[in-house]
């Protein structure tokens, strides 16, 4: 059975959900965003094709329980959401027509080097243009780090050597580069969206 969607949540239920997350409303809103982000990745990493819908179901369900039971016992509220998410995932797999979805049974996608699987040329060129602009906007230290990281090659030894040169553990280097690349992706996404909406680069 299809569940009630998240947007049916009443203001009261949403307020109660936020109060469950933190007594301070602003911190609660941040916690809500953090949990939603984790839920999206959870469903994505578990191979679901529609993580947003399933994340909404989890949030709905916790909010409804809070309305019914007033108080939920949870040592860690984030982990509580994970428990609910697991139930939602298992139910989702049992839904008619969903059985083939678990990733173990999914078909591999097209090879990345296959030209037919790529975006249209125009889209790619646009993306390259906006990305170049985004890289240019980076702080010099961040730009240098990304350049060095990519220049070092993907082999683990090369990355270790770069981490050693910088005097930081490999994991810290990886996270630092990830943050820069994530910021670049946000920048490029925003610019691409603006182009598609207005035809004018940002």
């Amino acid at each position: 059975m299809r569940e009630r969607r998240n947007w049916d949540l009443s203001a009261d239920a949403f307020d109660r959900l936020l109060a469950f997350l933190d007594a301070d409303r602003e911190r609660a809103a941040e916690a809500y965003e953090q949990i939603r982000r984790r839920l999206l990745k959870f469903f994505e990493w578990r191979g679901s094709a529609n993580p947003e819908e399933l994340a909404d179901r989890v949030i709905d369900r916790v909010a409804r329980r809070l309305m019914q039971e007033r108080e939920l016992k949870a040592d860690n509220r984030y982990v509580y959401f994970h428990g609910v998410a697991l139930n939602v995932l298992r139910e989702h797999w049992r839904e008619p027509g969903r059985q083939a979805e678990p990733i173990e049974k999914a078909e591999p996608v097209a090879n990345p080097h296959d030209e037919t699987a790529r975006w249209e040329r125009l889209e790619r060129e646009r993306l390259l243009t906006v990305l170049e602009e985004c890289v240019r906007k980076l702080a010099p230290a961040s730009r240098d780090l990304v350049v060095e990281y990519h220049g070092a090659g993907v082999q683990i030894e090369a990355r270790k050597s770069l981490a050693h040169t910088l005097g930081i553990p490999l994991n810290a280097l990886r996270i630092r580069v990830y943050r820069i690349r994530a910021a670049l992706e946000v920048c490029a996404d925003r610019a691409m969206k603006q182009i598609s909406e207005t035809g004018i680069p940002g």
Binding site: G47, I103, W119, R181
Partner: peptide, 27 residues
């Protein structure tokens, strides 16, 4: 199977491809 079956994963891969092909070496 895990990452390229979702729109988000595909978009991320396209972004990564663009970043790689842009040739950070230029900078």
């Amino acid at each position: 199977r895990r990452f390229l079956s979702t729109e988000t994963g595909k978009r991320h891969a396209e972004f990564a491809r663009a970043l790689e092909s842009m040739g950070a070496k230029r900078y």
